[in-house]
């Protein structure tokens, strides 16, 4: 040993702080968490709480000013037929979009998880990830182009001499309309398109965790493919499906852009919130409306947690 090295000293701010972090690990923990707690815990949660509190205020019908007294009057207003309609409409749309997303996403997720190998695996992964992250508004805009009267969909149907089929569908009451871009069917397709990747990814993750041996065991025991699917594959994919449905359901519940651009003029919850807080200036009613998706999602998340869906996120 030619020379000995000196040990680092404890002078300087960094060294002193570092010593403190070692002696009192909770100081380091607090230092790490403090920015997030201040930002999210105080600004964000604070705003949410303030909003919820306002839902217990009411608006004076004559002056249009907010009365700062705690009351359930605003919640009662939610139960008026017009407002109840909005809630039922939105929840029905969210449910149908979620169910359709499960049906369309399943083959993609199943193929990607169980059959795609090598280059195809990458193609499927990137092919789902890109639409997931890419611009929401551009995707909605693309559908405006597709569904327009002079747009590509009508052109294709005309070429195939299927225009009568579309007219038939559009003549169905409630979900039909003058054209696809002003009907619930149009709204439904855009929702389905925009949220589909949110369903595929968790589903694929869940299916990838199903060992091949399970499927083989079921086949060895003489089960028909359909039986294997319903009794083995589907239950194992269920946590992924629920995880994906949290996204499709929640996102549909709160959206107010899509029904505004593609759809009939009848309101969804998001639009109702937006218009009540904006032009009408009725913040209490807007706040009460936001409580609806919060309550629905709270129930949904509680249910999902019981089914073990969070492990698939």
């Amino acid at each position: 040993m030619i020379h000995t090295h000196t040990l680092p000293d404890n002078k300087g701010l960094m060294a002193k702080l570092s010593d403190l972090f070692w002696r009192r690990p909770w100081v380091l923990l607090l230092a790490l968490l403090l920015p997030a707690i201040l930002w999210l815990g105080i600004i964000y949660i604070g705003s949410l709480v303030a909003l919820l509190v306002q839902s217990f205020f009411s608006i004076d019908e004559f002056s249009g000013l907010i009365k700062y007294e705690l009351t359930l009057k605003t919640y009662l207003e939610l139960l008026r037929p017009a407002n109840l309609d909005i809630i039922v409409r939105t929840v029905t749309m969210a449910t149908s979009v979620t169910v359709a997303a499960v049906v369309v996403a399943f083959p993609i997720a199943f193929y990607a998880a169980r059959y795609a190998r090598g280059r195809w695996k990458v193609v499927f992964y990137v092919g789902v990830m890109l639409p997931l992250w890419s611009s929401y508004l551009v995707k909605v805009y693309a559908w405006k182009l597709i569904l327009a009267k002079e747009g590509i969909l009508n052109w294709i149907l005309a070429k195939l001499h299927l225009g009568w089929a579309l007219d038939g569908i559009l003549s169905i009451p409630v979900i039909g309309g003058n054209s696809l871009s002003v009907s619930y069917i149009g709204t439904f397709f855009v929702f389905l398109y925009v949220w589909l990747p949110f369903m595929v990814l968790p589903m694929q993750a869940a299916l990838e965790r199903v060992p091949n041996s399970y499927l083989e065991a079921s086949a060895d025991l003489g089960a028909k493919p359909s039986k294997t699917f319903w009794s083995v594959v589907f239950p194992l994919a269920l946590p992924g499906i629920i995880a994906g449905s949290i996204f499709t359901f929640s996102l549909t519940l709160g959206d107010y852009i899509i029904p505004q651009i593609v759809g009939s003029s009848r309101l969804f919850i998001g639009q109702a919130v937006y218009s009540h807080q904006g032009t009408a200036g009725n913040i209490p009613l807007a706040a009460a409306f936001t409580v609806v998706p919060i309550v629905i999602m709270a129930f949904y998340l509680w249910f999902a947690k019981r089914k073990g869906a969070f492990d698939a996120l």
């Binding site: 964000y44 705003s47 949410l48 303030a50 909003l51 929640s250 996102l251 519940l253 709160g254 959206d255 107010y256 998001g270 919130v273 937006y274 807080q277 807007a286 706040a287 936001t290 998706p293 919060i294 999602m297």
Partner: peptide, 8 residues
């Protein structure tokens, strides 16, 4: 839903 964050 994003609208809740926004309104809040």
């Amino acid at each position: 839903p994003g609208i809740i964050t926004g309104i809040a």
